[in-house]
Simulated assay, not measured.
Amino acid sequence: MNTLHIYPTSRALRTVSQNQKETDGFLPTLMRMDEFEQRAILLEHKIQVDPLQRILLLRKAAAFDAFEDLKLDLSLVRFFTKSDALFKFFEELSAEGVSFDTLAEADAYAEFGTHLEILERLLVNYHNLLESQGYTDKAFVPQNYRLNEGFLATYKNIEVHLEGYLSQFELKLLEDISKQVQLSIHYTTSKFNVKMQERFEILGLKLPNNKYIHFSLSDKKILQIENNESLLNANVYAVEEREEQIAIAFREIEKMVGSGINPEKIVLILPDESFKEHFTLFDTHNNLNFAMGYDYSNGRIYKSLEALYRYWQSRDDKSKKLLERYGFNLE
């Protein structure tokens, strides 16, 4: 019997594992939140549909005349790329326990009544197709699961290190588990997660703001509380062109390193993931390590080879200048 620690991301798990290696004793049992959710529930008499099959079945479910009003191309390749948005929409509705009727009553969706009816019919058709073949989908899991008591019984305590937001389904799942196993949550409250605090309050846990809190969901009581005295000292810079942000970012990173800050402790957060490609092109010394990975076709090496190929094909001044920008000496 041991304690299971649950973290939201793989990066968080790696950080905890690395820190634990520097201490004596056994490593704790660690698990990512999404993996825990998958292992903590059982789907009776159902098989989770695989990613490709779900797209094919959803496309088949869309075979009715009214679906054309959504202006979505049903050709396989195009539907393959567009279906992800539909699945995410269905999954979010299910996870939050929101029905199409409730959605239609909201002012923001008042003018989309017809579209909502089409989407509801699509979901019903898709569900019927899944049922006929013994499948289920993530969008229907919140209504069709039971706890995996055998898995939960292997742990005496479960500690969830929560960051951000829990859907209604995730919160209900944790509450159900807390009745089987002692379950506690580590959480940092702030003005940015008041909505989540309100959800905990409905369960009987009123959490003070701006605190580091460890509370028991099983016993509905606070176990430990500390003041959150972290301050954000921010400088705001205005630029006329988007690319100017790159120069500012590299300048500030250089200042931080020069002031003695460990480069491994510096994090560059991009609100728009696609902007990463611009930073990659200017990162000539490969100082940045992007957590979201790389698209090789947008990397400096690929672009350099592409420029070389274009020059070989045309040998004009434009392609020559592009090569020189990538460091080629044509003299």
Results as ranks from 00 to 15, higher is better:
2 N>C: 11
3 T>V: 08
5 H>W: 07
6 I>C: 04
7 Y>P: 00
8 P>K: 08
9 T>S: 15
9 T>F: 12
12 A>F: 05
13 L>H: 04
14 R>L: 14
15 T>R: 11
16 V>H: 07
17 S>P: 03
19 N>F: 09
20 Q>T: 09
22 E>R: 15
24 D>M: 13
24 D>S: 11
27 L>A: 11
28 P>H: 07
30 L>H: 06
31 M>R: 08
32 R>F: 02
35 E>Q: 11
38 Q>D: 14
41 I>F: 09
41 I>C: 10
41 I>R: 06
42 L>Q: 13
45 H>A: 12
45 H>V: 03
45 H>D: 14
47 I>N: 08
49 V>R: 00
50 D>E: 14
50 D>A: 09
55 I>H: 01
57 L>F: 08
62 A>L: 05
63 A>R: 13
65 D>T: 13
66 A>T: 10
69 D>M: 14
73 D>G: 04
75 S>H: 14
75 S>D: 14
77 V>Y: 09
80 F>H: 15
82 K>F: 02
83 S>F: 01
83 S>P: 02
86 L>A: 01
89 F>Q: 05
91 E>H: 10
94 S>F: 06
96 E>I: 05
96 E>A: 05
97 G>I: 06
98 V>S: 03
99 S>W: 06
100 F>D: 05
101 D>E: 15
103 L>G: 02
109 Y>Q: 09
112 F>C: 04
112 F>D: 04
114 T>Y: 09
114 T>W: 03
115 H>K: 15
120 E>C: 05
121 R>K: 10
129 L>M: 12
135 Y>S: 04
135 Y>Q: 07
136 T>H: 01
137 D>V: 07
144 N>D: 12
147 L>K: 01
149 E>Q: 13
150 G>M: 08
154 T>G: 12
156 K>H: 08
163 E>Q: 10
164 G>I: 04
164 G>M: 03
165 Y>A: 03
170 E>C: 04
172 K>M: 11
175 E>C: 10
177 I>Q: 00
182 Q>N: 14
182 Q>C: 07
182 Q>Y: 09
183 L>H: 01
185 I>K: 00
189 T>V: 11
190 S>W: 05
191 K>C: 06
191 K>F: 11
192 F>R: 13
194 V>A: 07
197 Q>H: 05
198 E>Q: 13
202 I>E: 13
206 K>D: 09
207 L>W: 01
208 P>N: 06
209 N>H: 05
209 N>Y: 02
212 Y>C: 02
217 L>E: 00
218 S>I: 01
226 E>K: 15
228 N>T: 02
230 S>G: 06
230 S>A: 13
233 N>G: 03
236 V>S: 12
236 V>A: 12
238 A>V: 12
238 A>R: 08
239 V>T: 14
241 E>M: 13
244 E>A: 14
244 E>H: 14
246 I>D: 00
253 I>C: 03
259 S>P: 00
259 S>K: 10
263 P>C: 07
264 E>L: 11
267 V>K: 13
271 P>H: 08
281 L>P: 00
282 F>A: 14
284 T>D: 13
285 H>W: 08
286 N>V: 06
288 L>P: 00
294 Y>F: 10
296 Y>P: 09
297 S>Y: 09
297 S>R: 14
297 S>P: 01
300 R>N: 06
305 L>A: 11
307 A>W: 00
308 L>Y: 04
315 R>Y: 05
318 K>C: 07
318 K>H: 10
320 K>T: 02
320 K>Y: 13
320 K>F: 10
321 K>E: 11
323 L>W: 02
327 G>K: 05
